[in-house]
Amino acid sequence: MTQRVVITGGASGIGLTLARRFAERGDRVALCDADAAAVAQVQADHPEMLARQANVTDEAQMQAFFDEVGAALGGVDVLCANAGTGGPAGRIEDLDYDEWQSCIAVSVHGTFLACRWAARLMREQGSGLIIMTTSTSGMYGVPHRSPYVAAKWGIVGMTKTLAMELGPVGVRVNAIAPGAVEGARMERVVQMEAKASGRTEEEMRAVYVKGNSLRTWVTADHLADMALFLASPAAEKISGQVMAVDGHTESMVS
């Protein structure tokens, strides 16, 4: 059955892979992203998708996007509240307050705006699925990454709470917790954490590999596999869960 799928932070990385995979199975996809160039590339490569520039922390921009999505799709079956940012790295006493606020705003406030919109429609429909992107950092403490960790723990809390609020009307809410995901964003994180910790980039990569049972990184397609499963009839009784796709994290510190 064709589903109407909306993805925030959908023009690159995990979000773009989610958009591509949902579209490949025949779903109608709408996405937003703050990166104008990335959105333009999606529009060129995937004219079948509705792709718009919008900053998830700007209520007016997001409402304009949601209004257009509502008119184009007539509703929403799956929301992937995926937008996030790595935030700064450093000891808590050295962090800049504006950078802290920016990290929290994208992950937490942006997820709130997307979930509020979807919840209103899904409650009316009596059905729907919300998938939030958290992180294994939302399950463990990570030195030098307190803003990111706080934001991702916040998303876990939202997942649990919204599952309770919306479950009685037939709406499921889950989160996907990626481990270390191959790609440009993770390379930037490695560079940032290496600088903050005084280690080399190679040493930081080794920490991530050593920290999970499978001794490997994951790919965006592994995360999309989980999202597609959650959006399938096979997962109709799964709600309020944080689905880690991480090779089984044993430790975030080494």
Rank of each mutant, 00 (worst) to 15 (best):
A71S: 14
M49F: 07
M49E: 05
Y208G: 08
P147W: 02
R116A: 03
R188N: 13
L214P: 09
I130R: 05
M158S: 02
C115M: 12
R199V: 03
A118Y: 05
M204Y: 14
I130Y: 07
R4D: 05
V106K: 12
P147R: 10
Q3M: 11
N55M: 08
T200Y: 05
P88H: 05
R20C: 07
K210D: 14
E165N: 15
S213R: 15
W153A: 09
A163F: 03
G138K: 08
V156H: 12
A150G: 11
M62C: 05
A114S: 10
L79N: 06
A234K: 10
A151E: 00
G154R: 13
L113G: 00
P88R: 10
P178T: 09
S213A: 15
F22E: 01
V242Y: 07
R25Q: 15
V5Q: 04
A71Q: 15
K152E: 06
A38C: 07
C103N: 14
A38N: 10
S232C: 05
K237E: 09
S254I: 12
N82C: 01
D27W: 11
V42N: 02
L223K: 04
R20W: 06
R120N: 10
S102C: 02
G87E: 04
G167V: 11
G110L: 08
R205V: 06
E182D: 09
V253M: 11
E193V: 14
G154M: 10
G157N: 12
F66T: 11
G90E: 02
D225A: 11
S239T: 15
I176Y: 06
S107W: 02
V5Y: 01
D246Y: 06
V149S: 09
T111G: 12
A163S: 04
G110I: 06
M132A: 10
Q241E: 15
R91Q: 10
G240T: 11
V6Y: 03
D45T: 15
M132G: 10
S239E: 04
A227H: 03
K195G: 05
T200I: 10
V56P: 00
V56C: 04
E202W: 02
A51T: 14
T249S: 12
I130P: 09
H222Y: 13
G13M: 02
S137A: 15
L223E: 02
T159S: 01
V69Q: 07
G10F: 00
V181G: 04
V29N: 11
M252E: 08
A23Q: 12
G13V: 04
A194W: 00
Q41C: 06
L162M: 14
I155Q: 11
D27Q: 08
A220D: 13
V108W: 07
A224T: 07
I130K: 05
A196C: 09
G74N: 15
P178L: 11
T17L: 02
G10V: 01
D58E: 08
R91V: 08
M139H: 15
A235L: 08
A54C: 02
A177V: 05
A118K: 04
M252A: 06
P147A: 07
M132W: 06
V142R: 15
L228C: 02
T134E: 08
A244N: 06
G26E: 01
R172S: 08
A36V: 14
L95S: 11
T200M: 03
A34K: 00
V29S: 09
L113D: 00
S239F: 12
A34W: 06
K195S: 12
V190S: 06
